[in-house]
């Protein structure tokens, strides 16, 4: 699929983390159990080869200031596993 240009207005705020100042709050990006399960169970019959990838483009700013990071978030879905990466730093393979 072609990547869209930036969409204005698609923002949300991540609160302060519980560990003290300068800690980001919880942020969750990517598809959860229900959609991943749907991809794994229905995808192959539609011709989806595993692993397949979902790329999400994220721009991060501090307290309304100019953006300081462009992140590529990638969710890799295998036939029975998931791996997530942010800016090239990845989780291990998660059995799913």
């Amino acid at each position: 699929m072609e990547q869209y240009p930036t969409v204005e207005g698609s923002t949300w705020t991540v609160g302060e983390g519980s560990a003290g100042h300068n800690q980001y709050g919880l942020d969750t990006v990517g598809y959860g159990y229900g959609v991943v399960n749907l991809i794994q169970t229905q995808g192959p019959a539609h011709g989806v080869d595993f692993p397949c990838y979902i790329d999400i483009y994220q721009l991060v700013s501090y307290d309304g200031a100019d953006p300081f990071a462009d992140n590529l978030l990638e969710q890799t879905v295998g036939s029975n596993s998931v791996m997530v990466c942010r800016a090239g730093v990845c989780s291990g393979t998660i059995q799913f």
């Binding site: 990547q3 923002t11 721009l59 991060v60």
Partner: peptide, 11 residues
């Protein structure tokens, strides 16, 4: 500390 996460674009 606030983060404004901008633009979850087309997947």
């Amino acid at each position: 500390m606030q983060l404004a996460i901008v633009s979850v674009l087309t997947l």
